[in-house]
Nucleic acid binder design. Structure first.
Lengths: 337, 337
DNA sequence: GTGAAAGCGCTAACAG
DNA sequence: CTGTTAGCGCTTTCAC
């Protein structure tokens, strides 16, 4: 390994026969530099392989041009075959790349991880922090915001304290469409496997189910899951044990819906003949499951893009907070209902 | 948002009635500070919510205490239901956390991304760079190493140029075990759906297949895939068209194997009665597919841990390069073969 | 055991 | 249009 000394601005300046200030101007794209000098500097930069020292630069500019995206989950959850995070990341990445900002991903499954992220951001490693999802009344977004660090969230924060801009989707609306579809196709006993009630997505999807059924004067049959396939399997078994006569189930995530399909097969029920199933997310699995899942599509990449745009406005010196954004959802009908 | 001014060392020093040097000592855990003073400083730090400015600190220490893990893929590939990357990340995360280093994830699906990572590292944003996988003869690891930046790779680099420490698994050994299992259970015409031939994993798994069959004097039947489920479906269809009499197939990844299962069902072949299928990876899907897949398990999290340990040795001032490490693989027999 | 002082490498006024 | 100068906030000798 060639532990070559990194050249400094000074070295480039000497080589090009100009002052450090001029080199700095060229490197930062100032237009007020004579063409010949600019060229000489550029050549010196190339020859030396000069790259500005980020620490020195940040020290004076107070910027790093990189932005953190926090995945408040363990690696297993982040990368399950649930493609929520990838889609968010893709959307965020697209916008940030266009703005020439570096995206830094951080996973914080643990309490300790939370603290490290806070220090990381406060220490000035990044110019702003985006949350890819929010659990319960997570205090971190508010804490960072109070520290003066630009913060935006994907998913409405349940925490009322410090206002933080966010982007979310119309969970309840999508669920209502799903449940109405079930009612319209003649289903009588419509159950649900709900998501975790410490997340807005879990709460609002359940609310959508409850509200729509209540409106239609139908009974509610609810069990709770945690968005994992395993919990979908268990949830379906529990539902079947409690209400053997059910003929439809709205499952709050595709992964859980896939689990439900597995449990239904195990119990000898045909889908959709005996039991209709509708999921939520429109992940890949919903197209490859047997049968393919009717589900609710949410524009996740668009969420990511919106999130990034809000952040860019914030770090771009915008003084007022961006307004929250709620994106529409859409029922995708396949074979399971 | 309270854009409160961040307190500096100076502010803490004034408040505690000591010099900046002393505050610095306390903050950095020096033992040569009187207990009473240390306490006064600590109190001042807490009251002011002081967090050291990372840029200023890095400028003098030449360290950032954070390390990058490069995922040289697009978001879609990184987070497919292929759980390779999550497992690597988990392993790396565990070790780094213990060493109090911050893990920074970066995805570089594009050419442009590659450049940005190089600049990012050379600019001193991180102390070292780990690659979670390697495509073809990627020049980036070598380029960074030549720049004097600590580099380690998961997957043997195909690039001979600059030597870079790496950790990999015994692909060929695992495949050989799989193929021998197929032979031992009486299969006659054993085909394979290979992985991409621009990656060591693809090449060596194919080599394991070819070598073992040749040794046994059996014919080789090969089609190429790219580790995606879709390519598994197509590969299996192609195989069936070309060699309708085949009775076994070794598929170079579980995701492709799942696709093969789908194609086999579509063609009316029973697994394992008509055709035996063995995958590679032991991802979650192999337990939930129908039937569950016989597959080759690789200790991915262990790879991640080893990778991190190599890196820590490097940034810890170790002068000599860590030796490459090759971890063992293991055949996991389930119902598909 | 503690303080004073000298930079780390860069940018940003401010002159010229 | 270019150079000089003054720091950004911190660590680290070196005296005391």
């Amino acid at each position: 390994m060639t532990t070559r000394e990194r050249p400094t601005l000074e070295a480039v300046a000497r080589r090009a026969g100009v002052s450090r200030a001029t080199v700095s101007r060229v490197v930062n794209g100032s237009t007020t530099v004579a063409a010949t000098i600019r060229e000489a500097v550029t050549r010196a930069v190339d020859e030396l392989g000069y790259v500005p020292n980020q620490a020195a630069r940040s020290l004076v500019t107070q910027r790093t041009d990189s932005i953190a995206l926090i995945l408040p989950e363990t690696a297993n959850r982040v990368f399950s075959d649930d493609l929520f995070f990838p889609a968010i990341i893709r959307g965020v990445g697209t916008e940030l790349e266009a703005a020439d900002k570096q995206l830094v991903l951080m996973m914080t499954g643990s309490e300790a991880g939370h603290h490290r992220v806070e220090r990381y951001a406060v220490a000035g490693h990044v110019d702003g922090v985006m949350f890819a999802s929010i659990h319960g009344a997570d205090p971190l977004p508010g804490a960072l915001a109070r520290r003066g660090i630009p913060v935006v969230c994907s998913g409405r924060p349940m925490n009322a304290g410090t206002p933080v801009p966010y982007v979310d989707v119309d969970h309840a609306g999508g669920v209502a469409a799903a449940v109405r579809h079930l009612i319209a196709t003649g289903r009588q006993r419509i159950a649900t496997i709900a998501g975790p009630q410490d997340m807005v997505a879990g709460i609002e999807r359940l609310a959508g189910y409850t509200g729509t059924l209540r409106e239609a004067g139908r009974p509610e049959i609810v069990v709770a899951g945690d968005f994992t396939r395993e919990s979908g399997i268990e949830g379906m078994r529990a539902l079947l044990a409690r209400e053997p006569s059910l003929d439809a189930v709205f499952v709050a995530s595709d992964l859980m819906a896939h689990g439900a399909l597995l449990a239904l097969r195990e119990a000898g029920r045909r889908v959709p003949d005996d039991v209709a199933v509708i999921g939520f997310d429109d992940f890949e699995i919903s197209r490859y499951s047997d049968p393919p899942l009717t589900t609710v599509r949410q524009p996740i990449a668009e969420m990511g893009r919106t999130l990034a745009r809000q952040m860019l406005r914030l770090v771009g010196g915008g003084t007022e907070l961006p307004e929250p954004v709620v994106l529409p959802t859409e029922l995708i009908v396949r074979d399971s209902a």
